[in-house]
Design a binder for these strands. Sequence first.
DNA 1: GACCAGGTGCCAG
DNA 2: CTGGCACATGGT
Length: 287
Amino acid sequence: MKSRIIEIPDFDLTATLESGQVFHWNTRSDGSWSGLIDRTPIRIRQQNDAQFEISLPGNSPSLSPGELTSLVSYYFSLDHSLDDIYASFPVDRVLNDALQRCRGLRIIRQPRWECLATFITSPMKRVDHIRQMSLSLRRCFGASVEGSEIPAYPGFRILSQVGEEDLRSCGLGFRARNLLGTARLLADGRFDLNKVASLETEPARQYLCTLPGVGRKVANCVLLFAFGRLDAVPVDVWIGRILKTRYLSRRRKWAPEDMEAFSISHFGKFAGYAQQYLFHYARVHES
DNA sequence: GACCAGGTGCCAG
DNA sequence: CTGGCACATGGT
């Protein structure tokens, strides 16, 4: 197993992987994380502030050291300048607390379908449940990968051909119909994920919302975590609570759309980043 | 056993 | 446009 050390100045691996944007990475006894970047098994360990050991478990996929570094850099968005992002935020006591506590958290670039599918299974589920469903789907329908304990996430062509009951047996409940419906639209070519990338954020959001099981919240998660739209703000119960109690009047009623608009106007073009810090900070200090 | 979880879709007023 | 409710499952 070849490994290499890379330098990354501002990166908190644990915060990034535990912040509820991705659902399949596991810690190991030696402190490293193992997971898959699409079909490639990856092992990564933070050695100190800025040094990371990355390696390819098993011996199947032959990536050159350069290719491995590129893959990891893209996935973890190591090109994002956190200094610039932090500097763009307003002076704000609430956000600054979260920034200090979660410094180094990065918005990652997930495979599009994997991200879309897992967030279709997310409504009314806790993060650990989403992890469970994701793992069940991988085990039931995903292709095994040499060097990885867990199989790859099943593609939409596979899922489009399974029965709704098979998806329910993975614990999806009422989400099974939505995942199946969406998988079929993609498999039939009636929905094109590549088109999402070519659209401006708002039209892309509207387009995503045509999929069954995808509303504004899920669409924003997909735009933020898979399409690098750093101004997309998913408003869930956590963010809604934080915005209402710390930034807005908790008397008045706020529509999620209005809270999105407030976030953009207050936090700016990286409002999605601000949202993720607030979300993670609130969750690690769970009530 | 209620109660709630990174919501969505549908229907009545 | 707004409010209310069903939707499955699993953990406190």
